[in-house]
Design a protein around this nucleic acid. Structure first.
Ligand code: FES
Ligand code: FES
Lengths: 149, 149
DNA sequence: ATAAATAAAGATAACTTTATCCTTTATTGT
DNA sequence: ACAATAAAGGATAAAGTTATCTTTATTTAT
């Protein structure tokens, strides 16, 4: 559904929502290990997410690293998709028509539109924080490797 | 959601379901025009779908072309995804974990699983023929260009 | 001030996807 | 048989994705 880059972005951001704060920054090494992703690629992705500083924040130097502000944690998961330039996936026509709408619907549209609405609702209504909380609540994972913390 | 190749495969197959039969074969030129796709790329894709001859069929030479058998038209849309090697999209974890299951669910899983089931059901229960019929019934399109036939 | 730590930036490489074009093979009608 | 037609197959190329590594810039602690 999403690109590898966006999958890593989602997992990394959720991890940051769970573990970081403005005075507890997390290094790329720990992040990549926690979400089971390639470190340097993940670095590049987080770098791009810090561009406007509303989603992911970072500081360099000792005790530096990446973190989310309280405001960032309240953002909808969809904000990550938007930042990654992959929000369109939620709006796209399943058959690849340029526009998915009632105006010129494809043969799947009538049946797909309700699923599409559920997808959009899910990514819009769920906040990054809410997802992070689910990890705390128990048997929910953000990595392929089960890590006993 | 799907690759360009799979989008073209879906549109082309639906078009063939609507227009072709074992004694009415359609050339790649007409198909590509009808579904607004790059002709040679579409040819390659259909070529790959004729490999096992259960989905798309073809014959060369004059009056040759691509077509679907009555059996092929009855197949679920999902058969196209399987033939394109992209069926996994329906089963995948939204966050990119290697397995999407209750065993090691990601933070999105609890909310996503019902949407996933709807997606799987849609692609499994809808037949290629049913989609093609919707085009006949009226204002439903398979191309970006509105073509008055 | 200096050294250490850490992200940012840049270059590059491997692989995949998308796409085109040319040649070959099979089929049909004459 | 022969010519025309249309898909099959192969080579290739452009663009995008995934990934790594090296150098630079910034921050902190001593
Ligand atoms: S037009 Fe194809 S899904 Fe809406
Ligand atoms: S485990 Fe992530 S969606 Fe099911």
């Amino acid at each position: 559904m999403f690109s590898k880059a966006t999958e890593y972005a989602l997992r990394a951001t959720i991890y940051l929502a769970k573990k970081s704060s403005p005075d507890k920054k997390i290094g790329i090494g720990e992040i990549a290990k926690a979400i089971d992703s390639p470190p340097s690629f993940t670095a590049k992705i987080l770098q791009s997410l810090t561009k406007d500083n509303t989603l992911v924040s970072s500081v360099r130097g000792p005790n530096g690293g990446f973190f989310l502000t309280e405001n960032a944690k309240k953002l909808p998961v969809r904000a990550i998709l938007i930042a990654m330039g992959e929000d369109e996936v939620l709006e796209k026509c399943v058959l690849g028509l340029k526009r998915c709408s009632e105006v010129q619907p494809c043969p799947m549209h009538e049946q797909y539109k309700s699923i599409k609405q559920l997808l959009i609702k899910l990514f819009t209504n769920k906040s990054i924080q809410q997802l992070a909380n689910e990890i705390k609540e128990g048997e929910v994972y953000i990595s392929n490797k089960i890590n006993h913390q």
